[in-house]
Design a protein around this nucleic acid. Structure first.
Lengths: 348, 348
DNA sequence: GCCATTTTTGACTTCGGATGCAACATGAAT
DNA sequence: ATTCATGTTGCATCCGAAGTCAAAAATGGC
């Protein structure tokens, strides 16, 4: 190790191109071996307090931070967690992402973020994940069985968020769509609504279909055959959906169930502006998710709020467990949503 | 290199604990040296097409992907970019983050995401960034001069997003708050509004203060002394702000300027529900940012839309330039916002 | 078929920190 | 003082890919 390196590193603390400091530089400055420096930075390692202190002083002087790449290479632990989110502009996900990021960094993990413009990009994205040898992954996008298997084969634990693996086993955290929807339907029926329209999401959405199925099942049990419109989970789909349903029902709708809040809000605005309907007096509208704007004064949406914080916490906890102790049995954790009465639907 | 390793790796392709495949394993299977494998994966390297093909076949069979940590260690390029966002639950940032992530991955970079619960966590967070030797950083949080200097010292290029360095030079991308606000004020004054309230953000927000200053200056030039309320950039601050301004002005407000959309929407809802005011007939309200919900039918906010896509693209372009060619002069790129007329304010 | 030139290839070293092991120091117990 | 246990320390090696360099192979010209 040439002397030049050390002096460079020292001046580097405040000069340009600095931070080239390595454990060898610190060792030299502190008058110890490189091993000692390494141990000083690993908690629980065998090192004398006095030595550690001396090393820390030197490290500080050089602005030294252990290189995560060198460390990851040898320990096979990268402290990276891949977080995959299909659609960030959806109102719901930022909240999830914020929680996940906070929780993960609280337990010493960094987030490697992947966002998808379309679900077809997943395979491509997996190819970007592997090189980074992430310790685990939290995935809020639809994985096919063989994609889940790739994680399993590589021994990378994953948690599916609001998704469930079909054939291949996978741990997951989800909000109980069926139960939430049952609750909503129950209230609508109790209020005497019978002419009901559903604004659903795209068919390739897992939670979307679950909510739709549940709604249909429980309406069907009461002898109600709903009108159906399929949108894209966004606000404008809600507007279009309402128009389509009004037409399909010849303007005689009692209630609209949107399978997420954004569409419900679109439907509300459209009902008010285009059809001049009073909500909820002339038309009840319910949503699902409990996103921020849903509770705003302009909407006061009747909806099911997902317990995002608890879900994110659970996802992180489960992931960490599986990182520390590989080979755990895939567990499915289902959270109940909270019914938010709101003022967009008449109550029975 | 023990033979055992290879057989493990082969079975690993479909068995548990797999993906242990290294370039040595691939080399052995393909009957070439490790160097050849390395070259096969680096575009433009000196290698015969036939050899590369043979290697790629072997690599595929083993599910081999070069280890980014080993590569990063030797090349000193990690292909990681830190993205720091102060407040993800703000409606504005998810859009930015989505754009940044897309753009960055398009140019072969991964996003290491950091989100802050409070600005005071920045120093702590920097300590988490350094070990990962990111190639660069895009920062939408308020950095103090000495924090910027730390990046400069380490030779890590950064782009400030909607922030500007004070003393320490730093490249930045921002939306022209002053010009946008001037436009808004101009319209309000032209419509004859004179009794004007401002709902501003917290004082520690850079863009917030810029917008506030600009509003005051231009109102002042017309002899208008506005009422001021300080909120926290969220929806509820808008509601509270409206109440406070109504009180301060004895209910005689002509117009309200909110320094972001979320607060403007809160103000609109509060004006309608609490004071039963028709917007914009009895009260004009304008916002700033042009987030999704602002254009929704229920609000149709008159606001300034930031050109998020172009700004994100610029941030990424500038960052990549600086990564490829260190030592470029800090450039400040200012984007003009687009005036969205909306229906929440009377026009002159 | 022979020599000069260009391509392709593999052996070896490197990046920076972690760790097994043996050497060493320290203090207590005998 | 001697022995033993315990706590520290440094040496050497390893992780996995990339790059250097010189040797080997392929190519071309005559």
């Amino acid at each position: 190790m040439p002397k030049k390196k050390l002096s460079e590193a020292i001046s580097g603390g405040s000069g340009p191109g600095g931070s080239g400091a390595t454990s060898y530089d610190v060792a030299e400055l502190a008058g110890v071996s490189q091993s000692a420096v390494s141990r000083a930075f690993r908690k629980g390692a065998s090192i004398a307090p006095k030595t550690r202190e001396k090393i820390m002083r030197a490290a500080k002087q050089l602005g030294y931070q252990p290189n995560a790449f060198a460390r990851g290479l040898i320990t096979r632990r990268t402290n990276l967690v891949a977080v995959v989110i299909s659609n960030l502009t959806n109102l719901y996900y930022p909240e999830v992402l914020a929680e996940l990021t906070q929780r993960l960094s609280a337990v010493g993990h960094r987030v490697l973020l992947f966002s998808l413009a379309s679900e077809s990009e997943i395979d491509e994205m997996l190819g970007l994940i592997w090189p980074y040898r992430v310790d685990g992954a939290i995935i809020a996008a639809r994985l096919k069985d063989d994609q889940i298997r790739q994680f399993n084969d590589r021994g990378i634990p994953i948690i599916l968020y609001n998704r469930v693996g079909e054939g291949e086993p996978a741990a997951s955290v989800a909000c109980d769509s069926a139960a939430g929807m049952r609750e909503l339907v129950r209230h609508l029926l109790a209020a005497g609504h019978r002419r009901i329209g559903i604004i659903a999401g795209p068919q390739d959405s897992y939670v979307g279909e679950e909510r739709l199925d549940s709604a249909r099942r429980h309406l069907g049990a009461a002898g109600v055959e709903p009108f159906l419109y399929r949108g894209g989970f966004d606000y404008h789909s809600g507007e279009e959906g309402l128009r389509a349903l009004m037409e399909a029902s010849c303007g005689k709708l009692d209630a609209v169930i949107a399978t997420n809040d954004a569409m419900a809000m679109g439907a509300i605005d459209c009902a008010r502006s285009t059809y001049d309907l009073a909500i909820p007096d002339q038309l009840s509208i319910v949503g699902f998710d409990g996103v921020g704007p849903a509770t705003w004064g302009g909407y006061q949406l009747t909806t099911i709020r997902q317990p995002v914080r608890r879900m994110a916490q659970a996802a992180v906890d489960m992931l960490i467990e599986r990182i520390e102790q590989p080979g755990m049995i895939p567990e499915q954790r289902l959270f109940g949503g909270e019914f938010l009465p709101g003022r967009s639907a008449r109550m029975g």
